[in-house]
Design a protein around this nucleic acid. Sequence first.
RNA 1: GGGUAGGUUGAGCAGGUGGUGAGCUCCGCUGACUGUAGAUCAGCCGUCUUCGACUGUGGGGGUUCGAUUCCCUCCCUGCCCA
Length: 391
Amino acid sequence: MSASYVGKASRFELTDPASVDGSTRARSGRLTLPHGVVETPQFMPVGTNATVKALTPDDLRDVGASIILSNTYHLYLRPGHQRIERLGGLHRFMDWDRPILTDSGGFQVVSLGDLRVVDDDGVTFRSHLDGSVHRFTPEIAIGVQEALGSDVAVAFDQPVFPSSSRAVVADATDRTHRWAERSLAAHGRPDQAIFGIVQGGLEPDLRAASTAFIAGLPFDGICVGGLAGDETAEQRETALEIVVDGLIDDPRPRYLMGLGSPADLLEAVHRGIDLFDSVLPARVARNGQLWIPGGRLNIRNQRHLDDPAPVQADCPCLCCRRFSRAYLAHLFRANELLAYRLATCHNLTFTLDFMTRIRAAIRAGTFPSAMAELRVRAGRVSGGEGAVMSA
RNA sequence: GGGUAGGUUGAGCAGGUGGUGAGCUCCGCUGACUGUAGAUCAGCCGUCUUCGACUGUGGGGGUUCGAUUCCCUCCCUGCCCA
């Protein structure tokens, strides 16, 4: 097994390969990009509109973000990638000097709309902002990302819902493969890495074939797309295992797109994933759900109004360092803007701290035995009959 | 003291001039949220043995087959005049 990968704009070194006893595929590494180093496994907060909602760049550093994701589709429509390029690129525009990965816009083209037409060459769609008609092709999506100047560009793909029929999945997966080749051919920026996306839905053979196809192309990293949708955790883990099986000797970073709850992150790391992104911790924070060890709390509940304790006693975030649950509960009820900032700081701090704990366990060689404790810490923060902490 | 407008489910309101008032917005509660058209959305929000039933329009009394509605009286609130 190669322990490192060197591309023209990125480097990935496994510092701690998966345990030799085969009990886990969790591994730890270091991804070096033009704007800095990313320790893996790592979570990328999502900053769709060149901002992680409610946070300043200083807040982002404070919560421990080492890389964020931003969005090609949204920035193309507003304020326009050419404008951002004229203003010195995305990093300068948003004053974030650490790495940025840009999603290709494929996800939005599918998630946004009824008013879209997919053909073999690309996608024609209507802007969600003003209804105007636009067209994305792999070449255009890559061109936009080069203009933005992200550290990592992502190939243009066509995701489909995991529950889609086999015919739909097969069609979209084939198209994604052709678009992957075209994305690579179109990409020329030397200070920008490019990742390719595996599709294949929940069809085992299509997943395996897609993994083989994408892994066969000279991408700098492999994204696992088409999950974190309407599939069950079991279906997701099965699909994930198929993909990682196909990448077992591949030295490049593996990025599972769209996953974000601590419990889900842990299980995916266990199965060999290095990178994640999700809006979940930030969105849920804005809606009043705070993640704490072992569970969560709804800060809008009346019982918090008199509670002088911080959201989480040992948390170093801006919110927990200086404010009480009572204060945060008040801010939410009063619809004060500070509520969103503080809550987002907390959930991202919790999530990124959780990843730090995972890395520490892997690097200490104790990940398999640490999983039980990490699972408890992750709690069930989403779905099902999840435990809601009362304290 | 006189006049006037009112008293509707936690709050604020709609409606209702003899034929079953549970309608709205807040507040509150619960759930959802995973490559962000999301500081959003959904459900509940009088009581109960909750696919239904019961209660409820300030209190009391009257007329009536039937009263939130008509009559009498009392209480409370706003405003105006003394």
